[in-house]
Simulated scan of single mutants.
Amino acid sequence: MRAVRVVGYHQDLRMDEVPKPEITGPHDVIVKIGGAGVCRTDIHILEGQWAAKAQVSLPYTIGHENAGWVDAVGSAVTNVAEGDTVILHPLITCGFCRACRSGDDVHCERSQFPGIDTAGGYAEYMKTSARSVVKIDGSLHPADVAALADAGLTAYHAVAKAARRLRPGDRCVVIGAGGLGHIGIQVLEALSPAELIVLDRNPEAVKLALSIGADHGIVADGSEAGQVMELTGGRGAEQVIDFVGEGGSSSQGLAMTRRAGDYHIVGYGEHIDVPAIDLISTEVNIIGNLVGSYNDLVELMALAAAQKVRLHTAKYPLDRFQDALDDLAAGNVRGRAILLP
């Protein structure tokens, strides 16, 4: 089968012919990929940012946002069958450790992360586990929802945390209305009564945000913190969700956070530098967010089936993987880029 692989850091990806994965364990599931999301993390992988953490042997197949159709199952698999349409939770988890038994499987002690530390979905087929497949509504096509497996799941995880603390009359700021942000906006619209303020450097992204649920849209030009303070009566927002995490967004985000409020960091790329006394005196919380749990993905797909969350996509044939990455790096993708094997 065809597979797009990392052959070296600071090098372009390469398409190779590799063996199709096979069932080797009772809980294995082979999925025919119908759509693979292109994520900024894939760019960070090629930059070598994940090399020490993942410690993966090169070459390997990249791609961690995947959906498709079940092609084969192991002898003990009962939750899906051949032909079922599925979306894949990005982690393969053990089911036995304390985190898994608590429903916090994203922190599984023995997890694998296809596309990060084992073979992923920039390919025609991918091997995963019965614990990682979510059967989805027949109205949903894999290519239209694939990026919900990570971008959507990460956005949902952060937004659900924030939504639990939001009350009518509160304000929530979303920094970044791109691939993750435009999903987070829709989830906030579905889960929260708060007034929603969205910031992005791109005026077109701000327009998109307003069309899918934002109450206020601000073009980030350096004056955004002041504009947010004006909209919030000088107090700041109760919840700030930063889907950017670079280019100074963390300092701006903290400046927009109300006393005793929460600043959620989702995107990454820069260091957060804040005097400890500022956190102590304001009781502002900085909250990190990784990808969501299996149950988070089930809930997100319920919203997708109800058409409360729709993924804006730009689709590319698998052999145009480099175009997709280049467009993403250049900021030319509205929503998420999806590869079609």
Score class of each variant (00 low, 15 high):
R167F: 10
P26D: 06
A51P: 08
V219T: 15
G253R: 11
L91C: 07
P193V: 01
A143F: 02
V18G: 04
T232A: 03
G292C: 09
A220T: 07
G267N: 11
G245T: 10
M126K: 10
W50N: 03
T313N: 07
A306D: 15
I218P: 08
Q307Y: 11
P142D: 01
A123F: 02
A3P: 13
V173A: 03
D326W: 00
S293N: 12
H157D: 08
G178H: 08
A194N: 07
L279K: 04
A260L: 09
I136L: 01
G179V: 06
R167H: 14
Y122D: 05
I218R: 01
A214V: 07
H27W: 06
A149F: 02
T282N: 13
D273I: 14
D323K: 07
D104S: 11
I33V: 15
E224N: 01
I265L: 11
K53P: 06
V86Q: 03
A36C: 15
V333F: 00
A177C: 08
A119H: 15
G48N: 08
D170S: 15
H64L: 03
P19F: 07
R171C: 13
W50T: 15
Q307L: 06
K308I: 06
P59V: 04
I185V: 11
K207V: 12
S250Y: 13
A3K: 04
A304M: 07
G103A: 05
K53D: 13
A190F: 01
D326M: 00
A162E: 05
D42R: 09
A177F: 03
A329M: 01
